[in-house]
Design a protein around this nucleic acid. Structure first.
Lengths: 101, 101
DNA sequence: TGAATTGTTGAACAACTGTTCAACTGTTCA
DNA sequence: TGAACAGTTGAACAGTTGTTCAACAATTCA
């Protein structure tokens, strides 16, 4: 385990902050089954496009999703496997927590 | 990959929210080298005991840390390996992001 | 006992954050 | 061209959150 700098801790917190919101984590989970346009995600989460777009912007700035335009639609997808890994371990933690009770 | 419920997403978000704060992630990182009392952590992070105690309470409620009293001191430690795993993968994500630039 | 130390608690304040709304850009197609 | 659709943006508002402060509880030890 390497030594972490104070700067790296702050970056870590910024990364996890993005996972720590119900809307954003549902967006990320929706994208686990493949790329989707803003419209699709908005329908799936029953929210307006503006709210989704704002959150996608945050996720994109953190390199958590990527996008490509195809005509009128802009398709978003997960940008790397770490996003899936973090979600999976989080789920493990929650499920083990329940077993212990 | 199992199907997740809406309830489980909210729990996930609550879990990650705790990682998404500079103070809390520094506390968790401080505990990676072994158990420490509130006083030690407060010194290490240069913050007062009250602020640390408030955050430790949140972390404990989420089963992320556990505690034991020894005389006047209450020693906190990480409660399971998932906490370490999540931090490690987060660091990987950040470091790979930098390589790509 | 009582002073000193460690830690917890709840209220209050300031700072931050997510959603909404309205206005806007970009693309398609008739 | 211009109407229709998809998406983005910035301002504003309400709700949430982290820290501080003062008061309190628990333990030790002289």
């Amino acid at each position: 385990m390497e030594k972490q700098t104070a700067e790296e801790y702050l970056e870590l917190a910024e990364l996890f902050k993005l996972f720590g919101d119900g809307t954003r984590i549902r967006i990320l989970s929706a994208l686990r089954s493949g790329e989707k346009c803003v419209c699709d995600i908005a329908d799936e989460l029953d929210m307006n496009k503006s709210a989704i777009s704002h959150q996608l912007k945050s996720l994109k700035m953190a390199n958590m999703v990527k996008s490509r335009r195809d005509g009128q639609n802009i398709y978003y997808s997960l940008s790397d496997a770490h996003v899936q890994s973090i979600i999976n371990i989080g789920l493990e933690h929650i499920r083990e927590g329940k077993e212990e009770r």
